[in-house]
Simulated scan of single mutants.
Amino acid sequence: METTIVLEKEAVENLLPQKFPFVMVDRMFAYSETSLISGLNIKKDNIFVDQNIFLEAGLIEHMAQSVALHTSYQFFLKNETAPTGYIGSLKDIEIKKLPEITDTIQSTITILQEFAGITMVNIVTTLNDEEIAKGQMKTVLAK
């Protein structure tokens, strides 16, 4: 996938259920039915920044919101309102490095399985093409 910005900050924020100051995705680089590449430029005022470091909780929230963006964008393309989604489980989360303010991270989500509103995804987060976090997440859509 290429890294051209498909959606900028305002469009992404309109698709996500989270609102400022809890938005952890500010761009979408690529989308397909089975994958998405999202990004976040880490700013000093981010609620998950401590001593200029983006904390583990922020990385995991960024990963979760990347999954939410994929789901919301699918519904947007069908002119439908996206239902609320929840994290069902996290599996094999590995955080290798924490980014700092002014860094821009990218997460690639790949749908592994989707059935009856339950989605299992693989997520890899990079900083300057270096893998800094990865894992799997199961999300559940509210009925």
Results as ranks from 00 to 15, higher is better:
Arg27Met: 14
Lys97Asp: 03
Asp45Thr: 11
Asp103Ala: 02
Ala11Asn: 03
Ser38Asn: 12
Arg27Lys: 15
Glu100Ser: 07
Pro21Phe: 11
Lys78His: 07
Glu33Trp: 05
Glu61Arg: 10
Met120Ala: 07
Ala57Gln: 12
Lys43Met: 11
Leu112Phe: 05
Ala82Pro: 03
Ile109Pro: 02
Gln18Arg: 06
Ile42His: 04
Ser107Val: 04
Ala11Trp: 00
Ser66Trp: 05
Leu15Gly: 04
Leu127Arg: 10
Thr104Gly: 07
Ser38Val: 03
Met1Ile: 10
Gly117Phe: 05
Thr34Asp: 15
Val23Asp: 09
Arg27Tyr: 11
Thr102Cys: 08
Thr119Asp: 02
Lys143Gln: 13
Thr139Gly: 13
His62Trp: 06
Thr125Gly: 10
Ile60Arg: 07
Asn46Met: 08
Val124Pro: 06
Val12Pro: 14
Ile5Met: 11
Gln18Tyr: 09
Gln65Lys: 09
Ser32Glu: 15
Ala82Met: 06
Asn122Met: 07
Ile105Glu: 05
Leu16Arg: 03
Gly117Ser: 08
Leu55Arg: 12
Leu59Trp: 00
Ala133His: 00
Ile118Glu: 13
Gln65Glu: 08
Gln74Gly: 02
Ala11Gly: 08
Ile93Ala: 06
Asn79Gln: 14
His62Gln: 09
Ile118His: 10
Gly39Glu: 11
Ala57Arg: 01
Lys143Ala: 11
Ile93Tyr: 04
Val6Trp: 12
Ile42Ala: 05
Leu69Lys: 01
Lys43Trp: 02
Leu36His: 04
Glu33Arg: 09
Ile47Met: 14
Thr34Trp: 02
